[in-house]
């Protein structure tokens, strides 16, 4: 399998102090990597750096054999999908939420309708298609946020604590569905988590961050 991401000597500073230091981290295409660690360990920071929303102070990141700094910001961000910890849905219908990223990419309407329909179906939320996002439960909102990212067919999917703040039953169902989807979709995925169960159910690999440093 070829390498999608290769990180060397990554350092991220916030307010003048290092919050993330990773000597070396690689992930092959199609793999699912869990980033574990306590609160404040740098999990979200790593995902934001990989989403190219935060700029590192130093280090090199290779994406699909290319130095990340040689890929324009917008072009790169359209190769990835990011789901942040809270679902952060827009104040519109479920359909329009899932279509958001596709519309940013100016994808033809007929293709948008097809992809949105497909991912609503795969995440078991087709019946919510026209419902305003403000009327969704936490679990439903999380599924919409995931559908919104999967619909982009990203080369790299970044999920920040995808199961946080869900009740046990919703969490379990979503874990099962996500496991099936990730197994079938062959999308390289990096997700952050506190939970060992999430790691065991979904991940091929795991890294542990502690105080912003990668424990190998």
């Amino acid at each position: 399998m070829s390498m999608l991401l290769d990180i060397r000597d990554l350092v991220v500073y916030r307010a003048g102090r290092p919050v993330l230091e990773i000597k070396r981290l690689s992930i092959e295409k199609g793999r699912v990597l869990a980033v574990a660690g306590p609160n404040g360990s740098g999990k979200t920071t790593l995902l934001l750096v990989l989403a190219r929303i935060l700029k590192p102070a130093g280090g090199k990141i290779q994406f699909d054999g290319q130095a990340l700094e040689n890929i324009p910001d917008l072009k790169y961000r359209r190769l990835i999908g990011l789901v942040m910890q809270d679902s952060l849905l827009l104040n519109c219908s479920v359909f329009d939420n899932v279509a958001t990223g596709l519309r940013f990419r100016h994808i033809p309407k007929i293709e948008v309708t097809r992809r949105v329909g497909d991912w609503l179906e795969r995440l078991g939320i087709s019946h919510l298609r026209q419902r305003p996002a403000s009327q969704l439960s936490g679990g439903e909102a999380r599924r919409v946020a995931l559908a919104r990212a999967f619909a982009l067919q990203p080369d790299l999917l970044l999920l920040d604590e995808p199961f946080s703040a869900l009740d046990r039953s919703s969490r379990h169902k979503l874990q099962e569905d996500l496991k099936k989807i990730l197994a079938g979709a062959n999308i390289t995925t990096i997700f952050s988590t506190h939970s060992e169960t999430d790691v065991q159910k979904l991940a091929d690999l795991k890294i542990e961050l502690d105080g912003g440093k990668l424990e190998v």
């Binding site: 989403a51 990011l82 789901v83 942040m84 952060l88 990223g101 990212a149 982009l152």
Partner: peptide
């Protein structure tokens, strides 16, 4: 507005 919404929009490929 939640400041993270901007980050989420950028993460979805918004210019």
């Amino acid at each position: 507005l939640d400041p993270r919404l901007r980050l989420q929009l950028l993460g979805l490929g918004a210019s």
